[in-house]
Design a protein around this nucleic acid. Structure first.
Lengths: 148, 148
DNA sequence: ATAGGATCTATAGTCCCTATAGAGTCAAGG
DNA sequence: CCTTGACTCTATAGGGACTATAGATCCTAT
C-alpha cells in the first residue's frame, strides 16, 4: 500500500519537511512519483524512516545513521563495528548525565538566593558573577567543556 | 589594567572569535580601541565575559543571558523573575536527565546483541528496526520528543 | 468553476559558534 | 632599517538538524 508524504508523516510522527530533508541528505531513497509529481512511499520506505527516527531517538547523528543504512543495504561485511558504535554512545550518554547532575546541583544552590529585592541584593546575580567560589565551574573548567 | 583580546581569551578560556561574536550579538559592549584599532578590555569587561560564560555553563541561551545582563545594567526593577528563570532551568535539566537515563538503559539492552556475524544475524539492526517492541521509544513517542 | 487543502521546489533563517581569507599592527632579531 | 612571525582586524561562509517562507502546482469536493 502506497502513501503520500503527509500520510507517512502522520504514521511516523515525523514532519513532512523533515522527510524531504532526509531524502535530500541521502538517508531516504528518492521514492517513486505519481503523475502529478507527488512522492509515493511503500512499506520499505516507511520501515526505513522508522529506523532513522529510532536511531535519532538514540542520539545518533545523521552520518552515523547513514553508515548504518549503508551497511544494512550491503550485508556482505561484518557488523562488529556496530557494537563499538553503541558502546561509544553509552559512554557519551553517561558523560552527559554526569554533567547534567552536577549542573542541577548547582542550579538548586542558586535557587532562592534571590529575595525579590533590587539588583544589589540579588544573590543569584552575585553567584553568577563569581567563578571562583563555584566548585561546579571549577570542575567543568578542568574538563574543558567551556565553549571551545 | 587593560588587556587585548588574546589575553582576555587566555584569562577566561573563551576563544577569541567567540568574544568577537558575543560583541556582535550585543552581549559584550564594544570596548575601547588602541591606536592600531585593537580591542582593549578593562576589568569590567572581563567580569562581564565571565558572567556570560558562567551562564552558558548553566545551560542558558544567549537571549536569556542578554536579559540577565540588561537587568544587571538597570537595577531599578525587581528580580523575582530570576528565580523563575532558574526554576525553569532546573526542570529542564531534570527532564534531560530522565530522558538520558532511559536512553542509556535502552542502549545497554542493545549492546551485545550484535554477534559480529552478517547483517541478517545482527541483533542490533533488528532491534533498531522495530519501534513496536521498544518500550523506550513508545514512552518517548508519548512525550513527543521525536523530531518535531 | 472555484475554493480548500496537500504537495511541489527553492531559498533563507535558526542557534551558537567555527573556519577561512586577506589585510593591517607590532615587537624582536639580523 | 628591514624582515619575520605572532597577533589582531573585518567580512564571509560553513556546520548540524532542522524550520519557515514564498510562490507554484495538483487534486478533490461543492
Amino acid at each position: 500500500m502506497k502513501v503520500k508524504i503527509g500520510e507517512l508523516a502522520r504514521m511516523t510522527g515525523c514532519q513532512v519537511v523533515t522527510i524531504r530533508y532526509y531524502e535530500k541528505e541521502g538517508l531516504l531513497k528518492a521514492p517513486e512519483r505519481t503523475e502529478g509529481n507527488y512522492r509515493l512511499y511503500g512499506d520499505d520506505a516507511i520501515a526505513r524512516l522508522q529506523f532513522i527516527l529510532h536511531c535519532r531517538q538514540h542520539g545518533m547523528n545523521l552520518s552515523e545513521i547513514r553508515d548504518l543504512l549503508t551497511f544494512s543495504d550491503n550485508p556482505t561485511v561484518s557488523c562488529d563495528w556496530i557494537n563499538t558504535l553503541i558502546k561509544k554512545h553509552i559512554m557519551d550518554v553517561d558523560r552527559q548525565i554526569n554533567d547534567l547532575l552536577h549542573l542541577k546541583e548547582h542550579l538548586k544552590s542558586l535557587y532562592d538566593k534571590c529575595d525579590g529585592g533590587k539588583k544589589s541584593e540579588c544573590g543569584i546575580l552575585k553567584s553568577l558573577n563569581s567563578f571562583e567560589n563555584c566548585t561546579y565551574c571549577q570542575k567543568m573548567k578542568r574538563k574543558k567543556s567551556l565553549p571551545q
